[in-house]
Each structure stands twice: as structure tokens, then as C-alpha cells.
Nucleic acid binder design. Structure first.
Lengths: 350, 350
DNA sequence: ACAAGGGCTGGCAGCGCTTTCAATCGAGGA
DNA sequence: TCCTCGATTGAAAGCGCTGCCAGCCCTTGT
């Protein structure tokens, strides 16, 4: 109940509270002897500085906030994608925060509607976080970015659609990833490769399609318009669009879906059509979601460095909150993806 | 940068800061006229009370912390289960917090090892959260519970193993759920029903097995020991244990796995054996994880009210932090589960 | 030997709020 | 009419810490 304060430690160590403060903050200009004595007293008393007091008195709050879209979370919280993506984001950030003595605050933001401005402003005013990690679609929300800038709160945009000039970002190269996966399929001998596009509201959807198209064209393969189908990241849409592809007179020998859920849908469609994966039709996904390993056959897919992105983001923010000013050039971290070759892709039937 | 303080609002409204404080906290004894005037001034200035200051001066921090096991998160963060469970926990709690003006803090706790005590103590001292939501295995960790009690921090245990007497809890009846699912299988005509137990460190594993055994015995069906296989909640273990079951001279006509991942493993094993689900062998799971809908056939499973549990937990904590003292009898909320009948269960082959 | 420049410590004034308690104003009761 | 009580307001005292600055000591330079 009655917790240990800095005064208690100071008294026990026989120093002033200012010295205790110095020790707790790892400031220089404290003799090792003093430091030891204070540390001993602190640990004996089980002292831990009060965050609110630190935040109120000083310029740091030791809090990193993560902005997550409310509608998205609620709509999609049952889908593989949402849950998985968010967990990974959190894992990366939480680990970094814990090690640095920071704390992670999750905030649901309602991006639709007119109250965003007020909501976010209130949040920033109340919390004064040392940094904010923006997940899509926050990463591209003009209002949010403006308020953050105006409040002077450092932030990092994770996986944003729009390019530089909008503040620090940590992302991966969706175009290259899709291109490489397409190259992989072409390398196996596929020439007729169908593509299922993701939910158009996500920038990643366009990027992945572009990568696919680039790779096809680079190899001189024509891409009839009806090979590129519009999905929405759900299993169901993958199922339907794959069915449509399979119904074509000259059906594709491979299907590349922009995420794993849709790829699983495609595998289901292939099975429903009495065909085999990858014997008759290869399937590639994107995300390396947990279920990509549970499917039969296991899915060839692209692993996104989601946890890594948020952990880099958290590190940047913490570093900055410690270091003080922004001495650096604009941050633009590009993290590597990985192609995961599993069993769902193989050479086309000859 | 320079934010709006209570003084600014007080000045603008022509009242004392105390009155502004009263209005912001919805305290009684403020004339409607004053209240209006203050509210107007506050909204014009875009004022939002500083959380740290409130927490430092007052007795509330407006922060609810969620304790999550670190090892679990890291080990299993790739598995369906971990990610899904956690997201749901967070969804429920975050929504409630947002509506109540509270904030959700995620804390990774390292339950193994000797430093738990110090780690948790430091956390509580630093944060002074108004409440803590304990997820398994925190829900049953003696050290954590003791520290929480000693610090006087209210908490709610979500889905704990051990029964009452250990503080408030919100949970579901795993035994009944497993019993009902088993009854469902028996009702379809199955008599030889194999069971795959989950990771033994989880209380839910025992509970579900017990429910299965109860149902079998209640119907007078004997359960040879080798029908009950030890898994560990992973797809792989489900696959292996199901293989073992299928290899039995008189193989079961149904397999009930204590979670969906293992159930998916069982479906894969059945397919590998050249058999059909549910034509030859029915499969039931537990969790209603996203991928339970993506499997072919779609999985019959039990939906746990995870988001509901955490949302109830958050509500209880917020209520208590507002209401003040603990006037109530020990909290013990039992939330209903739901059997989800999908395509993986059917009558046994005759 | 003396001044200048560090390294090390403590003092003190808040940070922006809530709490406690005192003060003021009316209305109802003796 | 005077007193009491409740409803309203405000003043002052911190909450536990950090930022700034003054003061001390000991080293170094000349």
C-alpha cells in the first residue's frame, strides 16, 4: 500500500534524493561508492521509481503507445490476418520495451468519422507518450500524422503505403517480395500464373500485384487481365477467385494469392475441383501465417518481418526519447522478407 | 508542445481549478451553469487532463495492466493458439477501457525463474495500475497473486485453473464444454471416441479430458487407456497422436482434440491414412480458432468466450476503481461457451 | 602559490492535478 | 429574526520525482 519513495531510499543511503535520482537514471557524476550505496538501499527497500511522478516532473513518460485501427480490429479480429499481424507487432515492441524499462500502451483508434482528431489529440495530451508506433492504416492517416507532428510526439510508421516525406517509417518491400515469389514460380516452369489481389484499401495489395506484374513482364510473359482477380484477403474470396481461375479454358498452372488466407482458399478450391496441389496447380501465399504450416500441403509463402518491424520501431523511439534531439537523417528502415519454400509449389504438370 | 493545463481552462471559464477538476471528474455539487461554462472552455481549448498528474495527485491511475506470460508468448507466438487467444483478450479489454477513458498496458511477465517477484513488484510500484487482468498462467501464479494482494492492487484472474479462494475470477466451464462435445459425438452414434489431451501445464487440459471421461462414463462407454493420447496443443502433436489412434486394431470412429490446432493435425493424419473426415472418422476441436473455418472440412469445435471474459474482467476492475471499496462478495463469473457444429463431425460409418 | 576548471552533491522550485478543509451563500426551522 | 445545515466554491498543501543552479572539493596550469 504505502509504497517506498525516493525519500526512503535517500534516508537509508544517507544521501540526498537528488543523488538517488541520479543513480536511478544512470546519470554521470556519481562516485561509484555512492552509486553502490544507493543501489543497495534501493534494492533492500524494493524501491522502484513512480512512473507518474517521473513523467510529470521530467520530460519522459517511459510509455510507448501503439495505435491500432478499431474498425479493423473488430471486423477482422476473427480473421487470421488481423490477430496474427497484431500479435506480432506487439511481441516485437513489448520485448524491446520491457528490456528498456518502457511500457507498451495499446490504443484503439477510430479512423473513420470526424472524431479522430479529438480522440487522438486527447490521447496525446493525456498520455504524453515518448513515442507512438503507427500500424496500418494509422501509418498513413493524415490527421493522425498532423496531430503527432504538432504535439511534437515522435512516431514511427510501420508498413505504410505512402513513401517518404511523411515521417519515419519501417517497412518491407512488398513489390520485391511478390516479384521474387513470382520468379520462383516462373523458375519452376510455370507460364500461366494467376494472381489474387488483396483488399484494395491496403497499400500492400497494390504493391504485391505490381511485383507480380513486373516479374511476369520481365520474363516476357503476357498477363491476360482475367488472370488477375480481385479478392479481399479472406479465405472465402480466395476460394471464389481461385474457382474462377480454374474455370478458365486454359487454366493457370499456378496461383499466387496476396495473403495466406486466400491461398488456403485457393487450395480448397483446387481440391473441390478434384485437382491436386501442387501436382495440377501450385499455390503460393503471402504472410507466413500460422495456418500456412497447418495446411495440406504446407504453403509456400513470404515471411514478413512484422515483429522485427515493430521492434525496430520501438528501438528507434526509445533511443530517441533517451538521446534527446533528432540529429539524424529521416528514418527509413527497409527490412528483409524471406521466401518460405514449402510443399504447395512444384513444377507444372508437363 | 506546450499543452493546455487546468489553469488555462480555469482562467478561460473564470472559475478556480478546483471547479474545473470537479467537472472533469463528474463530481457532484457543481451548478449546471458552471459545468457548462467549464465544459465549453475545455472543449474550446482542447483540454484533456494529464494522466500522470492525475495519477500522482489522486488515487487512480486510469491504467489497466494485462499480464501475459513472456515465455509462452515467445515460444508459441507463431502458433495459432497464442496469437489468437491474446488478441481476443486484448480486444475485449481494450474496447471496454477505451469507452471508460482507461488505458490498457500490456506487460510481459517472465514466470519462470526467481526474478518474477522483483519484476512484478517493480511493475506495480512503478505503474500503480487501477487493476490487473491476469491471463494464464499468471492467473494461478502464487507469487504474482501474493504481490498483487500485498500491493492492494485489484485484479481479475481470467480462465484460471484453480478454483475459488484465490481472488476474483472470470472463466468458462471447460469440463462441461468437453462433456457436451463428447455427448454430441455419442449422440451421432459414435462409441469409439479417441481423445487428445493438451499441454499438461494448462489446467484446461485436465478439465477437458475430465469432461470427455465423464461423458463417456455417463453413457456407459468404456475408455481404454490408449484412446487418451497426450498431445501438447500443437498441430504436430495432433498429427502424431491421431496417427497412433488410427493405427489401433479397432480404430476410433471419432477423435476429439482439446484444441483446434491438434484437431487440424488429426484431420491431416486421417487424410494421410487415406481416410475421409467425417466419412470415416469424425473430428472435433476446441477453441473456434480462425483456421477452424479454413480447414476442409470445416471444424466442429467449441467457442470460448475469450473476448467476453477479458471485457468482463476489465469492467469489473474499472467499476471497482471508480466505486472505491470492495463491497461485494467474491467475484466468480462463469461465462457460457458455444458448441459450433460444422462439417467435421457426422455419424460413424455403419 | 593562486586561479581556473572539472567532478560531485545537495537545495529548491515546480510538473498538473487531487485532497482536505475552510469559506460563502441561501433556505428551512425554532 | 437568528441559527443550522447543505450545497457550492476556492485556497493551500502536497503527490514523488526531475531540472536548474549553487556550492563544495580536488586537480591542473602557470
Amino acid at each position: 500500500m504505502s509504497s517506498v519513495t525516493i525519500y526512503d531510499v535517500a534516508a537509508k543511503a544517507g544521501v540526498s534524493i537528488k543523488t538517488v535520482s541520479r543513480v536511478m537514471n544512470n546519470e554521470p557524476n556519481v562516485r561509484p561508492v555512492m552509486r553502490e550505496r544507493v543501489l543497495a538501499a534501493a534494492s533492500e527497500l524494493g524501491y522502484s521509481p513512480n512512473l507518474s511522478a517521473r513523467s510529470l516532473a521530467g520530460s519522459r513518460s517511459f510509455v510507448i503507445a501503439v495505435f491500432v485501427d478499431a474498425a479493423l480490429t473488430i471486423d477482422h479480429w476473427q480473421s487470421e490476418r488481423g490477430a496474427d499481424y497484431l500479435s506480432r507487432i506487439q511481441l516485437g515492441a513489448t520485448l524491446v520495451c520491457r528490456d528498456a524499462g518502457y511500457h507498451l500502451l495499446i490504443e484503439l483508434i477510430d479512423h473513420e468519422g470526424p472524431q479522430v482528431r479529438q480522440e487522438v489529440a486527447a490521447l496525446l495530451a493525456a498520455l504524453k507518450p515518448d513515442g507512438v508506433i503507427l500500424t496500418p492504416p494509422s501509418s498513413d492517416n493524415a490527421v493522425v500524422l498532423e496531430l503527432l507532428d504538432r504535439a511534437g510526439t515522435p512516431y514511427v510508421r510501420v508498413g505504410p503505403e505512402r513513401a517518404e516525406g511523411l515521417g519515419p517509417r519501417v517497412h518491407m518491400d512488398d513489390v520485391a517480395a511478390a516479384r521474387e515469389m513470382t520468379d520462383h514460380l516462373i523458375g519452376l516452369g510455370h507460364k500461366r500464373i494467376g494472381f489474387i489481389v488483396g483488399e484494395p484499401r491496403y497499400g500492400a495489395s497494390q504493391a504485391r500485384r505490381d511485383g507480380y506484374l513486373e516479374a511476369m513482364r520481365a520474363k516476357g510473359l503476357s498477363v491476360p487481365e482475367f488472370w488477375v482477380r480481385q479478392g479481399d484477403f479472406t479465405f472465402q474470396s480466395g476460394l471464389e477467385q481461385a474457382k474462377a481461375l480454374l474455370a478458365l479454358p486454359e487454366r493457370p498452372t499456378a496461383i499466387f494469392a496476396s495473403n495466406d488466407d486466400m491461398a488456403l482458399g485457393a487450395i480448397a478450391a483446387i481440391a473441390d475441383a478434384g485437382l491436386m496441389t501442387p501436382g495440377d496447380v501450385s499455390v503460393a501465399g503471402f504472410d507466413d501465417s500460422p495456418s500456412s504450416r497447418f495446411s495440406r500441403p504446407q504453403l509456400t509463402t513470404v515471411r514478413q518481418p512484422v515483429a522485427e518491424m515493430s521492434s525496430v520501431a520501438a528501438k528507434l523511439l526509445i533511443e530517441r526519447s533517451r538521446g534527446g534531439a533528432s540529429t539524424e537523417r529521416p528514418v527509413d528502415e527497409l527490412l528483409p522478407f524471406t521466401l518460405i519454400h514449402r510443399a504447395s509449389t512444384a513444377p507444372p504438370p508437363r
